[in-house]
Design a binder for these strands. Sequence first.
DNA 1: ACTTAGCACTCAAACTACCTGAGTGCTAAA
DNA 2: TTTAGCACTCAGGTAGTTTGAGTGCTAAGT
Lengths: 356, 356
Amino acid sequence: MELTERKKKILRAVVERYIQTAEPIGSKALQELTGLNVSSATIRNELADLTELGYLEQPHTSAGRIPSPKGYRLYVNELMEEQRLSLEETKQINDALHLKMRELDKVIDQAGRMVSQLTNYPAFALAGNARRPTIKRFDLILVDSASFIAVVMTDGNLVKNKLFRLPTDLSEPQLQLLTTLLNTAFVGKTLDQLTPELMRVAEHAAGSSYGLISLVVSFAMEVLDSMENSAVYTAGTSHILDHPEYQDVGKAQKLMAYLSEEQTIAQSLALPALNDDGAKILIGPENVAEELKDSSVVLASYDIGDGMKGVIGVVGPTRMDYAKVAAKLSYVADGLSKLFGTPELPPASPAQEKEE
Amino acid sequence: MELTERKKKILRAVVERYIQTAEPIGSKALQELTGLNVSSATIRNELADLTELGYLEQPHTSAGRIPSPKGYRLYVNELMEEQRLSLEETKQINDALHLKMRELDKVIDQAGRMVSQLTNYPAFALAGNARRPTIKRFDLILVDSASFIAVVMTDGNLVKNKLFRLPTDLSEPQLQLLTTLLNTAFVGKTLDQLTPELMRVAEHAAGSSYGLISLVVSFAMEVLDSMENSAVYTAGTSHILDHPEYQDVGKAQKLMAYLSEEQTIAQSLALPALNDDGAKILIGPENVAEELKDSSVVLASYDIGDGMKGVIGVVGPTRMDYAKVAAKLSYVADGLSKLFGTPELPPASPAQEKEE
DNA sequence: ACTTAGCACTCAAACTACCTGAGTGCTAAA
DNA sequence: TTTAGCACTCAGGTAGTTTGAGTGCTAAGT
């Protein structure tokens, strides 16, 4: 059953006002706010209907109305206007995104912080793998006779390294041999396949080189492991306290505690959203997690190629400004997708400028 | 002027009780608590003296006493007993420290989290350089004709890498040449010296290779930059809300906001403590930062060799359990120092076991 | 010179009663 | 269907009261 235009207008006004003030709104205020040329009594009747239908709630008999989760849902689905970001805002986002290192986890972390700062809500960000990562290649670099650097590259073109120092000496040819061995035996294997393979190799390998192999392979395992269980970065949890719905320290505490359980966030919130495109909004009781039953979550996923996807999300009171948050979140998510799509700067012609 | 033994005993009881309960304590309760065989009236007289001397405070005329910052200071300096960690606790710390990747920033982050979890206070951790870091060597690894990995090692033996993809082709000899060039021109230079050097090289270098050089060098600059302005990792800020002194949301908010200003923490708190060994305790007004005037900070520094030092710290109410916190913090700091002192596992003899 | 019992005093916190006013629901007329 | 009018509700604020933990002081005891 469709609501009448007037009811929608009123509902929308209630939601938008409540988003701003966090206070129940009454018939008289709505009269002005909606611009409808009807008396407050008429609005009262409409409000009674909307309450009956479950779109609005009354904190107590003699207070104004506030939107119910169902009301927010209708608002988000039908009444909310797409928010366009201002030029400044897009610029700010772009700058922040393009600055600094392009190390995957740093960028993700950074993106989370930025979103939080931009929206004034706590935010989180993570990356996940659609398929199981494998090692694509090994390189060993001799530093001096007692240490070398292992460089490991995954099939997702993520590169990690580690410096190893040894109590014994090591020569370039030895290292060469080792590299070949690693690249023949362990490339293309997933995390689980590495251990058995290592055992198989153990039987053929000579004494001291086995020790080295297992060192490097366990490093590779660490890398794969950290990719499979990718970290969740949270930022701006203190913003929770900005909002009157969490003035009750107990509530704030619960939500904060939840936000620091990174595992839970990843599995129950983010992963389900990995494959949905665009922004996804979860309002109050629509959330599975008990701790989020009276908060809302806005999620956006991004695609960084090579089978890796990520999710970035914002948590706030049900009263949060969905339009703005969704717009900003989507923009950042798009930005991330593009960022990881573009190649490095081309080898340019020699620089001519010589300013200070 | 020295306090009498009895006064000290009473002061100590007040501090220790207040640390537990966060409530003012009166003469009668102290009578039992101290085990002194005197009447409450006598204790009242002593309390009056201690208050006069500035070691105790009265929230209001008819409440018990609480320790003043000066009281805490005396307690910390003279009355506090060195806390010994239980076997479980040391084991817990050791396990956490030795597990997982030994990537510098990850470990530091991890250490901060652990301390926070261990003490139930917010914690932070950072590493700082005593001297300016320089690049020690460059290595370039050809991946395929259009991409290569740059591996950069600093004089502190920190190794970082980055994958570059190019729109043009690249050959092994080219890369070799480039490596030599980088290693002759840019090794041993600090961040500031890199740009001028780059310009100088620009004049001699051929067209397309200059583009590549500047790519790699700017990556090296990013690395040096991130080392000089090393990140501050904070963890467990939500623990603030556990303590009754921050039930007032306003206060909690201020402290949290402060804790997220990583720059400020680094400069005003951590750096000054870099060179002090052992645990350092800053009580309430002893803190320089306005935001910390009624909180306390416990700091411990650690040494990870190669001119790098770090600080790890805990923030809490003045009423925090200094003995426990200082003990745990020092233990973790020592652990970190040792962790970075030990070399890698030796290349062992070939494994014999074959259990599942 | 210290210790102690006794007692009047203080004051935050908890409880009560009361008032106010924004906002409602309902009715009866337009 | 809309509107004016009115009785009704109830959270939140204000003011007065009670309670009790804890004090400071005094005067007597060791």
